[in-house]
């Protein structure tokens, strides 16, 4: 307990500092001149960075959902391609459907009609080709459940219907999921960069404010102000400005994300760009982070500036 006492005292002091910083008092706030170009520099840069951060967050969450959706949807969807002589095609198709009917984990299985196959090929071969004369394989659309033994089904098909090939889309699904994952990483990287730039800009604004008010700091020291008092006055001012700017930028960013088209006719990535459920809480962290970055940057800059004065 004795060993913990200094730690507890330090923690209590930090909490008291934070409480004083949060509450402040109007008279002490007046010590720092209220105007100057650093006001708008801090507020606008925090707002702009917060706005971008909200989009980066939306992008990160969207790519995450996209990757999950692609992985989930395509993992359940499979195709059986049946290449057989025309005379045996119907019989082999029936055999495959019979196997699927008695295979555990198969949610549904359905042979595509010739019209559906023609519709699939139309974008590549055009509408007027005599598809009925081409030796096209039959296609069976299969939706599997989680308990479907894909390898077991593949082996059984190979044994009983040699012309049937089960394609679980692994070959082309994996690059898509990997691409979505990389996009998600880019989103996180953008967030980190935005956070770094926000910290740097707020730090520069704090240093500019302190440099512009060097005489104020000098006077405060000469009349007996402790470093903590001076640092707190400036830290509180810059932190509150950054917090206000970031809050405004966050609200604007969330409104902009909300106004994005939610259900485009063609579907696709924009369908996912936005927040959903608990994801809406994430942007709340943006102003808090901006405030924290401003607090740390200003406090450090203030203590460094104070070191120049006795």
């Amino acid at each position: 307990m004795t060993r913990l006492r200094p730690l507890l005292d330090a923690l209590r002091q930090r909490l008291a500092d934070l409480a004083e910083l949060a509450l402040g008092d109007r008279a002490s706030d007046r010590v720092v001149p209220p105007t100057g170009h650093t006001v708008w520099l801090t507020v606008l840069s925090a707002a702009a960075m917060a706005f971008l951060a909200v989009f980066a967050l939306a992008l990160t969450q969207a790519t995450g959902r996209l990757a999950d959706a692609w992985a989930e949807d395509l993992a359940q969807s499979m195709t059986i391609r049946l290449a057989a002589p025309a005379a045996e095609a119907d019989a082999q198709q029936a055999a495959v459907l019979a196997i699927l009917a008695e295979t555990p984990g198969v949610a549904s299985a359905r042979a595509l009609t010739p019209a559906e196959q023609a519709a699939l090929l139309e974008p590549w071969l055009g509408p007027d080709l005599p598809l009925d004369r081409l030796p096209l394989p039959r296609l069976i659309d299969l939706v599997g459940g989680e308990d479907l033994d894909v390898e077991g089904l593949r082996l059984r098909l190979a044994g009983e219907v040699p012309g049937a090939v089960l394609d679980d889309h692994t070959d082309w699904r994996a690059p898509l999921v990997a691409a979505a994952d990389r996009l998600r990483m880019l989103g996180w990287l953008a967030l980190v960069l935005i956070a770094g730039v926000m910290g740097a800009v707020v730090s520069l604004a704090a240093q500019a404010a302190l440099a512009a008010n060097a005489e104020v700091i000098r006077v405060l020291r000469l009349i007996g102000a402790r470093d903590f008092y001076v640092a707190r006055a400036f830290t509180r001012r810059v932190t509150l400005r950054a917090l206000a700017g970031a809050a405004g930028g966050t609200v604007l960013g969330m409104i902009a994300v909300t106004l994005l088209p939610s259900e485009p006719a063609t579907g696709g990535f924009l369908t996912y760009l936005g927040f959903s459920g608990a994801g809406w809480l994430a942007p709340i962290l943006v102003p808090l982070f901006a405030g924290l970055a401003a607090f740390l940057a200003t406090r450090r800059a203030a203590l460094r500036a104070l070191a120049r004065f006795e």
Binding site: R221, G224, A225, L306, E310
Partner: peptide
């Protein structure tokens, strides 16, 4: 200390 100097200045 810097705080000590501040107190002296008061």
């Amino acid at each position: 200390s810097r705080d000590g100097l501040a107190l002296v200045r008061q």
